[in-house]
Amino acid sequence: MESREEVEALEKLIGQLEGLHSEISQLAKKSPNDGLNKFKLKLVNKVIADGNALLQGGYRPFDDFELFEEDDLPTNSDVTMIISQYIEQSERFRSDNVLYDRSRYWYSINGAISDIPAKTPTKVGGEKK
């Protein structure tokens, strides 16, 4: 990562993805084949667009996926599946940008340990020294 703002954007993205996943997966359990309404789809697409901008360098889940089409409403289960992939890749990106020092994990900015505390990495490659 290159800046504190990028770390903040990643933390925001992860929180939004997890919130959307929680809400939409409940809809998918009740009605997996129902289409997501346009209001929710607009929010989902905004978060996905932010994810596409942030998850560069091989971290985007699907190179050929940009956004859901508003004219062809995706099903609840389709949205849940895509959001799950974005959660996985966001966490891989986060884990790859976390370093261990002084008995704690910190975000790495431009390859150096920052003063921004981080959660323990959960994906392989998260502990760079």
Rank of each mutant, 00 (worst) to 15 (best):
I83F: 06
L67S: 11
D50Q: 14
D96A: 09
R102H: 14
L73N: 12
G51C: 06
F39A: 12
F39N: 11
T122N: 12
G57I: 03
G57W: 07
D71L: 15
Y59C: 07
L67Y: 13
D71F: 14
N110I: 04
S95F: 00
D96W: 08
Y59L: 02
L73C: 03
I87P: 02
G58N: 00
I83S: 10
D78L: 06
S95G: 10
D115M: 06
G58P: 03
S114A: 07
A53L: 06
R60N: 08
W106H: 08
T122C: 11
N76E: 13
S84T: 14
T80W: 04
F68K: 06
I87F: 00
S77N: 04
Y59N: 11
F68V: 03
E66D: 13
E66V: 05
L43T: 09
I109P: 05
G51A: 02
S108E: 15
F62R: 14
W106Y: 11
R60A: 13
K40T: 04
V47F: 00
G51R: 04
R102C: 12
E69H: 12
S90G: 09
A118T: 01
K123N: 11
A49N: 12
K38C: 07
D50R: 14
I48S: 08
K38F: 01
A112C: 08
Q56H: 08
P61V: 07
D96E: 11
T80A: 13
F62P: 05
R104V: 00
P117A: 14
F62W: 14
Q56P: 04
N45E: 04
V44D: 01
R60Y: 09
R92N: 05
E69A: 15
K119L: 15
A49P: 05
Q56V: 07
Y86E: 08
A118R: 01
Y86P: 06
V124A: 14
Q89Y: 11
E69W: 12
V44W: 07
T122M: 09
G51K: 07
L41Y: 06
T75Q: 03
D71W: 13
L55V: 04
P121K: 06
A112E: 15
L67A: 09
E66N: 13
R92M: 08
V124K: 15
Y107K: 06
V98P: 01
A49M: 10
Y107N: 02
P74L: 01
A112Y: 15
E91Q: 12
D78A: 14
I109G: 01
I113D: 01
N76F: 13
T80V: 10
S114I: 11
V79G: 03
T120Y: 10
S95P: 06
I109C: 02
L73V: 12
L54F: 02
N76Y: 14
D101W: 10
D72T: 13
E66G: 07
A118N: 10
Y105E: 03
N97A: 10
K119H: 09
V47A: 02
P117Q: 10
V124N: 13
K42V: 01
T80K: 08
P61H: 08
E88I: 10
S95N: 09
G51V: 12
G125V: 06
E70G: 04
V47Y: 08
E88T: 15
S95W: 04
A49C: 05
L67D: 09
Y105P: 02
R102D: 10
Q85T: 10
I83T: 05
R60V: 05
E66P: 01
D101E: 15
L43C: 00
R102I: 11
Y105L: 04
I48H: 02
V47G: 02
D101V: 12
N110K: 14
N97S: 15
